[in-house]
Amino acid sequence: MVYYIASLSLILIGLYGVLVKKNLIKIVLSLSLINAGIHILLIAIGYIDGRTAPIFSTPELRPEQMVDPVPQALVLTAIVIGLAITALALTIVIRLYDHHKTLDVSKIRELKW
């Protein structure tokens, strides 16, 4: 249960940052927070009380003693994609800073809609 609350708080903090903060780097950080929260949430949904990681490292382990492996596999993919997204977003922030000499979204007029 505590994992649900932790992941939900991470997602909500990230959402708040994306909606309220004006600094572009803080917005990218907030996106990363949402990402991390979703990863924890998926792993927590796959967890089953009293069971172990899905690795048959000793012959005594039975499939009935293991947690759901599918969310873990999906999260492994999602972590890599999240890293790629963060790196690309930071690159775009560097280029925006070079062009406008500011990181404040409200001062970058061309982004207004």
Binding site: P54, I55, F56, P69, A73
Partner: peptide, 9 residues
Amino acid sequence: AVNVVTSII
């Protein structure tokens, strides 16, 4: 493979 997550991926 004994690691189920690796074998899925």
